[in-house]
């Protein structure tokens, strides 16, 4: 049969290729160990925490395409600062890492994920703002980012800030705050919208857009991955406090997460999480942690 012949040829080619090692294979390494320690804890009957512990599963919405904060490794498990935050919270609830279920939340569907009870928390470079607070509640902030611009290495279009974006094509993600900001405050910029920043990075690399704009920490991740292709303008023009999204009205759960964050600020686990993830990529020291906002 023709098909079997093709199959045999394909398998032979595969074996031949398998003989020579790929660079990625040579660098495949053990997953780094976690900083979070599991503790036994008791929660009041009927509280959200008790329910989650009883279910034995913490459902976390995160990103899987943002280096430093949430990027899936080749095994498919997300890694990054956001992921570490989720692990901290899980550990304080007495849940092990295996009991966390990560779900991808792209920018355009983070609120629906919480509103529809698909996840318990969203840790996904998620900016706290009043509009979102109408639908959900936020613990934190656990990090202060700012919107910045990434351009091709050498900055051929001479973009120094958002005002230089007029008439330029700038890529961002539908449903994100940076996209809304450009849309309302810098309408002369030509906005190109994908569903994930990695597509934006590809487009910038291929020269299809002049710039990519979003929070600086997301951009630094991309720049660190390809320093000869990308460059950060380094002129943040907004304040983006990252919060941990919980379902509307979950005040008790929110307080609990805030306690976890404050404790982590003090005992250094927060800084350790930074050093291990985003800090390891960008080579920057952990910043001063932001103060938690218990509204």
């Amino acid at each position: 049969m023709r098909i079997t012949r093709y199959a045999a040829g394909f398998a032979a080619a595969g074996l031949l290729l398998a003989g020579c090692a790929s660079e990625a294979g040579n660098q495949a390494e053990e997953a780094p160990e976690t900083t979070a320690e599991v503790e036994e804890v008791e929660f009041p009957e009927g509280s959200t925490m008790a329910e989650i512990v009883e279910a034995g599963e913490l459902r976390v919405g995160t990103k899987i395409d943002q280096p430093g904060f949430g990027l899936a490794n080749t095994a498919g498990e997300p890694e990054g600062f956001d992921v570490e935050m989720a692990k901290l919270i899980a550990a304080k609830m007495g849940l092990s890492e295996d009991q966390i279920t990560f779900t991808e939340t792209v920018s355009a569907n983070r609120e629906p994920f919480l509103v529809e009870d698909r996840v318990d928390i969203v840790v996904a470079t998620y900016t706290i703002n009043d509009k979102r607070k109408e639908l959900i509640d936020f613990a934190g902030p656990y990090y202060e980012a700012g919107q910045d611009i990434m351009v091709a290495a050498g900055n051929p279009e001479n973009i120094e800030g958002p005002d230089d974006l007029a008439g330029k094509s700038v890529c961002s993600v539908e449903g994100s705050t940076p996209a809304e900001n450009i849309r309302t405050n810098y309408p002369e910029a030509e906005l190109v919208l994908y569903d994930a920043y990695s597509k934006c990075a590809d487009d910038l690399r291929n020269g299809n857009v002049d710039a990519v704009t979003t929070d600086n920490v997301i951009l630094t991740g991309f720049v660190a991955g390809a320093p000869d292709a990308f460059e950060l303008v380094g002129n943040p023009f907004t304040e983006e406090p990252y919060g941990i999204g919980v379902q509307k009205g979950e005040d008790e759960f929110r307080d609990f997460i805030n306690d976890v964050l404050e404790e982590a600020y003090e005992n250094g686990t927060w800084a350790a999480a930074w050093d291990k993830t985003a800090g390891a990529i960008t080579g920057t020291e952990a910043p001063e942690p932001p103060s938690v906002n218990r509204y």
């Binding site: 398998a18 790929s22 990625a24 495949a28 080749t74």
Partner: peptide, 15 residues
């Protein structure tokens, strides 16, 4: 480059 295509068969990378 064969090394680039090898990733498709290199089980160490999980690909």
């Amino acid at each position: 480059d064969p090394a680039r295509w090898a990733i498709l068969f290199d089980t160490r990378t999980n690909v």
